[in-house]
Design a protein around this nucleic acid. Structure first.
Lengths: 143, 143
DNA sequence: ACACTAAATGCAACTGAGTTGCAAGAAGAA
DNA sequence: TTCTTCTTGCAACTCAGTTGCATTTAGTGT
């Protein structure tokens, strides 16, 4: 884990007025370095021997989500996948793509989406999330 | 439950080559009449004394989803919400709106969404689901 | 109408991510 | 350093979802 990531993690915690404890710094570093959303088990696995108790990871993720540093990206097989909120704007999160072939979900962080209306029939729309489904480049070849 | 809905339910089952059993007809009727997605408990509650065993409802929903008659709309508080696939096109489901005030989720079935590209960086995009968040008309007044 | 077979149902028991209470430990302020 | 408040770890619980198996039933052919 790079010192730069660690520094970033600590800064984010401080800005959110959260105590900079080892478990929080560790979990946040994993998410900052991840290329796709991770569930709790995957986060724990990446921390290996330094992994805190499962309940601590759980509560850490809750705290980070509440602070807006981390997002719950989506649910798959009854478990939540988390990601750093870095690449999301306030109004919309980047789209997530789930391949119907291999079942993997990835972030299309740079994809531009057409903006949705800010209001509709009395509803005020503050945020949108888009979930895409189809075939990833690898699975497309095999077909 | 209207006879028309019952007839529709039976037709859908036959078309999907599923046996027209009482539990399936009952569950499907509930979903066809529902205005918003329902979870398993809500479906059972609406069937009241005619409700089949919980496992049967569970497996019925699995079968209906596999057949494409019903969709898993979204997850809330660890439970899935189901809806009839009627108002979804093959390429996209209507958007679901979750109010940050009252926590309720509703369907914006008639809302027109800008279409997303059919492919992007090697990914073939077959379907999209959009989840919206904000304030519903009622909660907006109270603020 | 009757018999047959594959599929559906109900029961009971299990699974496992998520969740809580509480005592012990650590971060940050004074 | 001392103190207060927040955080952590443990153990135990929750409950929607899930499975195995014996029984029943829908749909088909006789």
């Amino acid at each position: 884990m790079s010192p730069a990531t660690r520094c970033k993690a600590e800064t984010l915690l401080t800005e959110a007025a959260l105590r900079r404890t080892p478990p929080r710094i560790a979990v946040l570093q994993v998410l900052l370095n991840a290329r796709e959303p991770l569930n709790q088990d995957q986060i724990t696995a990446r921390l290996d021997r330094d992994a805190p108790n499962k309940v601590t990871v759980y509560r850490t993720l809750q705290a980070l989500c509440a602070a807006g540093i981390v997002h719950r990206a989506f649910v798959q097989k009854r478990t939540w996948y988390f990601e750093s909120a870095e690449r999301c704007t306030e109004h919309q999160c980047h789209p997530h793509f789930t391949c119907t072939g291999c079942g993997r979900t990835s972030c299309l962080a740079e994809m531009r989406l057409p903006a949705v209306a800010r209001s509709y029939k009395g509803y005020t729309i503050q945020r949108q999330r888009v979930q895409l489904e189809g075939l990833c480049p690898k699975c497309r070849e095999c077909k």
